[in-house]
Design a protein around this nucleic acid. Structure first.
Length: 465
RNA sequence: GUCCCUAUCGUCUAGCCUGGUCCAGGACACCGCCCUUUCACGGCGGCGACGGGGGUUCGAAUCCCCCUGGGGAUGCCA
């Protein structure tokens, strides 16, 4: 074990989405690589917006992606006593104070400051109050110095400085007594011993004030690594209006977790010209140094391509297991066969998603296929009766119903009749699959097996016109 | 408005730190050809970028400055 401790800290106000998943992935990879510790913390201090449903959705997604944590999940809602105590500590030390300004007053001041072209920050009205009126109040953290500069060296972005004049006394405890994000994140990251905080770069602006808080609380300041945001095709922050952004939406659409992981990691990180990475390779190769600094656009096409790759190269047994759910969703009863693994093998190069694979597999499990008009008029014709009979006879005579034997049988037919392969194969394909697009004809035959194949040819012959 | 971050093909990126080997490499998408029993897979090829302007230098995608574009923050959300 190294002493690296990182965490992923989502707030449970929705599902885990693409951006969060990537942040979690980076944390996970670095922890595994450095043999550090990866902690999961649920940031649910906003009690009104946090739901158990969201927590479950996030946990599900993490599990699906294979990002298991070493510690946690911890819930901030369980730690309010600790935060209270820390607020009190700052109050006692004079590093924080009660502010009695109302929301309305604050809003008005902000607006006025904006209008005057100034910075919309708290004016310090209650900073030096000595009375303590019996009114609702918030607790504000007093800026240690009004004219200094806080600088930190981000592990991804490099040196970042903010002048204190840009900051103001931030609220650390609300009127209702609950603590705010910028405060609890510091207390927790410190108390949980985080040595490195990897998070989205929308938090960069918060970092200097958090550093001030670490110092005020007497905590060591961790390292920071701010990863760039993910944008939609219009370069706007990725959101629902860009389509599916929830990780589990992709599971439902038939994507494989390894495709999602591979896609996510390459959005903002690279390793020379390499594109395909297994989790094990990522753990070996991932470094913060190769994470880019600029925001990236989410590209569904590339994700699809990766999914195609992983389906094509995936273990058929595993894929068969995953496919069941999608077959069931389409109301396909696959229990009576043909063998699901054989079905998968015949479809691996033809499906980009498990949904597509289920679509392509449907014909295998349908005893009485529906023929559309086009297929009927083109292939199920009286002129083809002889061909069907010939195929049927030859197939009946086939001892081994494997691809090699079938190929031989067909060679014989073609030789005897002088017909071109397509002349024979397409009508047969129609009889077997109900359409004109399918896996290789020998493959279909072999997967179906002799009995089913013959039955389908028979049935087609009954419908010639 | 102000502050912070950022800037190579349409998109993800390599190269930038340690200037010349870059008339800029890979991948996705797109287009064409080949393979072919259908649909696919695959193979080959094509299209396509250093945002603009100043410097520094014999030489800049690479270093410096300005501008512009994009993102973020500016909450008693996280």
């Amino acid at each position: 074990m190294s002493d690296l401790r990182v965490r992923f800290a989502p707030s449970p106000t929705g599902t885990l989405h693409i951006g969060g998943a990537r942040t979690a992935l980076f944390n996970y990879l670095l922890a595994r690589k450095e043999q550090g510790t990866y902690v999961l913390r649920i940031e649910d201090t906003d009690v009104a917006r946090s739901t158990q449903e969201s927590v479950d959705a996030i946990l599900d997604a993490m599990h699906w992606l294979g990002l298991s944590c070493d510690e946690g999940p911890f819930y901030q809602s369980d730690r309010f006593d600790l935060y209270k105590q820390k607020v009190q500590q700052l109050l006692d030390e004079g590093k924080a104070y009660r502010c009695y300004c109302t929301q309305e007053e604050l809003d008005a001041k902000r607006e006025a400051a904006m209008k005057a072209g100034g910075k919309p920050k708290y004016d310090g009205t209650c900073r030096n109050r000595t009375d303590s009126p019996d009114q609702p109040y918030v607790v504000r953290f007093r800026l240690p110095s009004d004219d200094g500069v806080t600088t930190f060296v981000d592990r991804i972005k490099g040196k970042i400085s903010i002048r204190h004049e840009e900051l103001d006394d931030l609220i650390i405890q609300r009127t209702d007594g609950t603590p705010t994000y910028n405060f609890v994140v510091v207390v927790d990251d410190a108390e949980m011993g985080m040595t490195l905080v990897i998070r989205g770069d929308d938090h960069i602006n918060n970092t200097p004030r958090q550093i001030l808080l670490y110092e005020a609380l007497g905590y060591p300041v961790p390292d920071f690594a701010h990863v760039p945001m993910i944008l939609g095709a219009d370069k706007k922050r990725l959101s629902k209006r860009h389509g599916a952004t929830s990780v589990m939406d992709y599971q439902k659409m038939g994507y494989l977790p390894e495709a999602m992981v591979n896609y996510l990691v390459r959005l903002g990180w690279s390793c020379g010209d390499e594109e395909i990475f297994s989790m094990a390779e990522l753990i070996d190769k991932f470094t913060l140094e190769n994470v880019g600094k600029s925001a990236g656009v989410f590209n569904p096409d590339k994700l699809l391509w990766l999914n195609t790759h992983y389906i094509k190269n995936g273990d058929p047994e595993r894929l068969a297991g995953l496919l069941e759910e999608f077959l069931e969703m389409k109301g396909i009863d696959y229990a009576a066969g043909p063998d699901l693994v054989a079905v998968v093998k015949s479809l691996q190069e033809r499906a980009a998603t498990l949904v597509q694979m289920a679509d392509g597999a449907a014909f295998y499990f349908s005893a009485d296929l529906e023929f559309d008009e086009k297929t009927r008029s083109k292939f199920l014709t009286e002129e083809n009766r002889e061909i069907f009979q010939l195929i049927s006879d030859n197939l009946s005579a086939c001892q081994d119903f494997n691809e090699a034997a079938l190929e031989n049988a067909f060679a014989k037919i073609l030789e005897e009749t002088g017909l071109k392969f397509g002349k024979v194969a397409q009508p047969l394909r129609a009889a077997l699959t109900g359409g004109s697009a399918s896996p290789g004809i020998y493959e279909v035959l072999a997967v179906l097996g002799k009995e089913r194949a013959l039955k389908r040819i028979q049935r087609a012959m009954e419908q010639l016109s």
